[in-house]
Amino acid sequence: MPYRAEKPPLPESAEQLRARIPGWGADLDPADRPAVPRERLDPGASGAHWDLPEQQPERWPRERSIEHGRLTPVFGTSCPPKGLSGVVRRAAYARYSEGRAAHWLLLLAADRIDAVESHLASFGTLHPDNPITETGILGEPSARPLSSRFGVRRTDVVHQPLDPVIVAGPWVAAAVVGALVVRSGVRRARR
């Protein structure tokens, strides 16, 4: 009990643990632990044979945090900003530091805009989005869907019904808006 100085006794001795668990105590000595010491100035250890890496060519104006003093020598080139989501993303990077909630909230908003833009754009291609195949639910029948979820007291089944709402919600909303627009157009045409 913590009300006295002694630590509560352990159920097993070191000898018992060593006999039961492979490798018990192999890294008892902190010197054997690779992350100790935490910071160890050793510029040669990494294998880098440069002082500052060469600059990767910038093929389009690369958005960057205003907490950086320069464009980093190397960067990812996946998915350049495009469309309205790209405008929002560029604004988030140009105006707000990482310390500002506005930076992250704008980026999250851009992610949602990006999804809508991309879904709409996909309908103009030979490979339109298909929420049935892309959500992977076709794998359910072979994945023991009932016994995995029920009778096992897992707490996440309470909110799992929200997942289809998150996925299907924007599609349903778009369908409703589309139907309203069409109905309104038809009514105007009849007048």
């Binding site: 910071e39 160890r40 980093t72 960067f75």
Partner: peptide, 16 residues
């Protein structure tokens, strides 16, 4: 240079 490879400052322009 100090072994903090996961904190590299030369590879991520989007965040520090």
């Amino acid at each position: 240079a100090r072994g903090l490879y996961s904190n590299c400052h030369n590879v991520n322009p989007n965040a520090t």
